[in-house]
Design a protein around this nucleic acid. Structure first.
Lengths: 199, 199
DNA sequence: TAAATAATGACTGACCATCGGTCAATAAGG
DNA sequence: CCTTATTGACCGATGGTCAGTCATTATTTA
C-alpha cells in the first residue's frame, strides 16, 4: 500500500552518516539539525528512527562492538604465546587509528551508560561483557591446554575485563599509557605464575 | 570598602545545597534555575562561582575525594591482615549508604571527565590517582614488612587502581556485585602469591 | 487491462517549550 | 560614594513534536 523501508538499515545509515561528525566533536557538540542535514533527511525523520540523540550513539556502538568482537576472535587462534595473545586482547583497541576512533565514541557511550542508562543499554552492556568473557575464556583455555598457564588463570577473567574497562577510562581521563599498563599487569601476573610453576 | 564574601566557602555552600538534588536526578535533569532556587540565590550568582553546570559537580567531588581519602588513610593502620585491608580499600566506597551517594556523583563526574574534560579536571584526576597510589603503597609496604606479601606486590598497584575504577563503572552499567568481584580478584592473587611463597 | 481512486507509511520543517548563559540595573557594606 | 555582590529579565540555541505533504502501492472501475 505504501513505501516500506528497511528501518534497521536506514537507522544504521543515518547513524553512520554522522559518525565522522561524532568523532570530530563529541555528542554534546552535535545538534539534531546538523545530524539531519548530514544524513540528508529532515529533522523529524531522525525521530522516526531514534528515541533521542543518545540513541544514535547506541546504534553506532552496536556495530563497533560487532567489529571489535571479530578482531578479538582472530586473536584466539593466532600463533603466539598466551601472554602475547592476552596483550593483544587488551591492547588492540588502543593500538591503531581505527581503534582510537571507536574508543572515542565508546567513551561517549560509557558516559551515556552511566548517566542516561536505559534498561536496553544495560542489557547490551551485559551482553558485551559476556561476549568478551567468552573470548577471553578461549584464549586462557588454550593456554591451559598448552601448559603455559595454570587452571586458576580462569579466575582472573572477570577482574581482567574490569581492569580493561578501567583502562579505557584512565587512558583518557589521566592519559595513562595503555601499553605500559597492560604490559605491567601481565608481566607481574606471569611473574607470579611462573614462580609458582617452578615451585 | 565593600562586601567581601569568602568565594571558596560560598562556592562550596552552593554546591552542597544542591547535592541531594543531584543525587536524586542526575546532572542532566538538573537545571540552573533549580540549583539557584535550591541554593537560595539568583541564577546569575551561580555564574559568579561556577564556570558552568559541570563545574558544580567538580566542586562536590573535590570535597568527596577529600573525605574518601580520609577514610582510606584510616585503613592503613588498622589491625587486620593485608588482604582484609586491601578488600576494604576497594570495597569501602561500595559498602555503605554514604559511599553509594558519593559514587553516584562520582560517576557523573567520570562521565563529565570523559566528555567535557578540561585540563583542570584532568589534573585533578591525576592528582587523585597519585593520592590513591600512595595510600595503596603504604598498605602494601606494611604487608611486605610483615612478610604477608612479596615485594613484587608493588608492581600490581597501578593495575589494581585501574581495576577499581573499572569496577565503579561496571557496578553501575551492568550491575556487577563489587564484593564478589573484589573478593574474587584478591583470592586469586593471594592464591598465586601463597603458592609461590610455599615454593 | 488500464486508468482512476483510495489508502498508508515515510517524510518534513515550522513551531514550541526549555534551558544555559549574559548583562544592565540594583542593593548593600564600608 | 565607590566597590563588590546580587539579581532576574532577557536572549539565542536546541531538543523534540506534529499537522500536513508526498510517494508508492492496492483496489476499484470501466
Amino acid at each position: 500500500m505504501a513505501i516500506i523501508v528497511n528501518k534497521e538499515k536506514k537507522r544504521r545509515n543515518i547513524a553512520f552518516a554522522c559518525k565522522d561528525l561524532l568523532l570530530e566533536n563529541g555528542i554534546n557538540e552535535l545538534t539534531i539539525a546538523q545530524i539531519a542535514k548530514t544524513a540528508g533527511v529532515g529533522k523529524g525523520t531522525i525521530y522516526e528512527y531514534f528515541e533521542n540523540k543518545e540513541d544514535i550513539v547506541f546504534e553506532i556502538i552496536t556495530v563497533f562492538i560487532a567489529e571489535y568482537e571479530h578482531r578479538l576472535l582472530e586473536i584466539v587462534d593466532e600463533k603466539r604465546s598466551t601472554k602475547e595473545k592476552l596483550f593483544h586482547f587488551f591492547y588492540i583497541i588502543h593500538g591503531d587509528e581505527e581503534g582510537h576512533k571507536q574508543l572515542r565514541i565508546y567513551r561517549e557511550f560509557l558516559a551515556i551508560s552511566m548517566t542516561h542508562g536505559t534498561r536496553e543499554i544495560m542489557d547490551f552492556n551485559r551482553k558485551c561483557r559476556d561476549l568478551f568473557l567468552d573470548i577471553l575464556s578461549q584464549i586462557i583455555e588454550k593456554g591451559v591446554e598448552n601448559g603455559e598457564i595454570p587452571e586458576q588463570a580462569h579466575d582472573m577473567k572477570s577482574a581482567l575485563l574490569t581492569f580493561s574497562l578501567g583502562l579505557v577510562v584512565d587512558t583518557h581521563t589521566i592519559g595513562l599509557d595503555p601499553k605500559e599498563e597492560i604490559n605491567g599487569l601481565l608481566n607481574t601476573l606471569f611473574n607470579f605464575i611462573e614462580m609458582k610453576e617452578k615451585r
